[in-house]
Design a protein around this nucleic acid. Structure first.
Lengths: 155, 155
DNA sequence: TTGCTCCTCACGTCACGTGAGGTGGC
DNA sequence: TTGCTCCTCACGTCACGTGAGGTGGC
């Protein structure tokens, strides 16, 4: 039972990116195909598909550039390797180092997420205030407003 | 009592952007200085300072490109003009149009903010899960972890 | 008059988009 | 064999960064 392989177009479609983007990630050292066909076209596995999604999250949600993402993935890769099996890294201190690095990384990410959530909440309050003021203005001046998605949410 | 004027460097520092960025916004038609000195250097007022902050919010928080931001600011400008005074726009139907457009805009923004909040919440849960798994692994293998900002938050 | 800030080109960069021209695989 | 997908250049674009060389204002 060999693992299912995907062509670059399939991976791109799943992630909602272009094939050019996946080739660019490869060029920048963020994503290597699991293998190649005889003719030379790229073949990806589930691991790579998940990796693309992770890259997009770190880019779109957190706003990191590809170099920062490369460093983050490096730490996560070493952690995954450590968790999968104890092979490789020999010394106890080396092992502890990797776990500490990953713990610190996730702690930092968590802090940045919290601050993003705070900024978004402020922005949401601002926009909702403006929505209300629009509605007030419309009521005062006898303007009928269209139904918003807002209304659909509360139905 | 004339309004306080700011030089480009002051505005840039307040907004946390470069002077190049402000000149680029001008080039793209997003931000005009309130005036110029005799020698030709740009002078901005409070309105422009606020506008830069708004552009940055729409860029950094919502991820819009400058063309979308230009459209959003256009709607907001017309709405502000309408609210300040009833001068200008003559017909009632025109007035109603502007308010409806703004209401729809804010409704859309609100929806996009909500979906961003949902994605961020998912991502936060994922990262917090990883933090916990790191802590569990460390406990099992007698690895002492450093204090995180996490700890500082709960103190 | 001395600095710091401003000015306008203009080329560089990052993360891709978009053809051009050719080969691969069900 | 016919399409659709893949391949590698290579130039274009967006939102700026970064000097180069020169003028402005407290």
């Amino acid at each position: 039972m060999t693992e299912r392989r995907y062509r670059i177009g399939e991976v791109a479609a799943q992630a909602g990116v272009s094939t050019r983007t996946l080739r660019y990630y490869e060029e920048r050292g963020l994503l290597d195909p699991a293998g190649h066909s005889v003719g030379g076209s790229r073949r990806y596995g589930e691991v790579e598909v998940a990796r693309v999604a992770r890259i997009r999250d770190l880019q779109a949600i957190m706003g990191f550039d590809l170099e920062q993402i490369c460093r983050i993935l490096g730490i996560e890769d070493r952690l995954a390797q450590l968790k999968d099996e104890f092979q490789g890294d020999p010394t106890e201190s080396r092992r502890a180092d990797i776990v500490r690095q990953a713990y610190e990384l996730y702690g930092q990410l968590d802090q940045q997420i919290r601050s993003k959530q705070a900024v978004l909440a402020d922005f949401a309050a601002e926009i909702e205030g403006k929505l209300e003021r629009c509605a007030d203005f419309a009521a005062e001046h006898d303007i009928t407003l269209p139904a918003t998605a807002q209304a659909a949410t509360s139905s």
